[in-house]
Design a protein around this nucleic acid. Sequence first.
RNA 1: GUCGAUAUAGUGUAACCUGGUUAGCACAGGAGAUUGUGGCUCUCCUAGUCCGGGUUCAAAUCCCGGUAUCGGCC
Length: 372
Amino acid sequence: MKNFEIIHEDNKARIGILKTQYGQIETPIFLAVATRGVGKHYTSMDLIAIDHNSIISNALILNFRPGSQLIEEMGGLHKFMNFNGCIFTDCGGFQASRHFFQGKDNTGLNFLNPYNNQKFKITPKSIMNIQLEIGSDVAMMLDDMAPYGASYDQAKEAMELTHKWGKLSLDFHNKLKIEKNSNQMLFGIVQGNFYEDLRKESAKYISSLNFDGIAIGGVAIGEPKEEMYMAVNSAIVHLPREKPKYIMGLGTPLDILNMIEKGVDVFDSVYPTKVARHNTLFTKDGLIYLNRGKHKNDNNPIEKDCDCIACLNYSRAYINHLSKIEETSALRLKSLHNIRFIKRMIEDAKIAIKEKRFKEFKEEFTKRFEKK
RNA sequence: GUCGAUAUAGUGUAACCUGGUUAGCACAGGAGAUUGUGGCUCUCCUAGUCCGGGUUCAAAUCCCGGUAUCGGCC
């Protein structure tokens, strides 16, 4: 049985159905970030309230606390956090750019558990086991991500280690899935930093393995936009049409639309929630800075036609007030608005794809979003 | 009426006693950043010495007068 089916296409843009162990989910999707089994300032109930059914959590960080075994004992992450939606788990490769990273060798990545300062090593095998214990619907292979500015040799080395770990991750995952009687999917990750030939090589190699889906990793790590698009373009043309494609870490509303146009199906990013906490809110007419004085007496919602919990119930003036007095409820409302904005934007994009006018939709959306 | 204290961006204050960088800081105001999340974070900009005179090479700072505010006493 195929676990991904493309049901509509408009040039490269498409609508698909991802068939996971939790259930079926229509792509393109945006995964709200719930690294530690909860969003920052929002819970699974909040996501349900804005009709958001897909998240990404982090296997490494969940394993630090409360531990993947405990989550398994509690019936898996869906039950533990009471989220009846699609859950991806990231492997922890990205956390190699964090300060608790302690270096790598050919067999895995070393970390310091920030909660108890114990050394903790993850390997392709151990992180597969952790993700199966957590019980996510989609697991990610262990990858090695070179930082922005890495030399060619450094990028090549990271890519080659990623390829090696990809094969190992896949083999272990297949074995463990049978042992645990799981239908968890596993996605591969393309690396190659910002070198066109490495991106191509990595895309071809990862595509040759039998992953359920393919992610492009190692972008949006501080590089200029042009380099990001170059890296993605170099890889994506070598990925098979029929597999779900995931760009890790994107993004902004316009980045998401641009990537949908290239055939990307899955997104995740802290961008919408991080900027929301810092008072940058998405509207169809562009970004607004909600903490500015002009909104102090604005009785309108953040966005007129938005159906999120913030816009249905509160004015810009009120949320500006909550922000000014540093009430944490403001962080929740603002985060939920931006998540909902992305979801609604993607829903509109899907309608456009069905009607074969995605390009026009994107251009109109971009024009309005960028106008000042 | 009288004696005293105080007067610095929109607001609150620092520098005054002991004259000497570009008058500092916070909030407010404006423009931005933020992309597989240990942090309601970070960057830049706007804006000020009550008024008048004096001393001095040099005054927010010392002196005199005015005005305003606050307080004490009649």
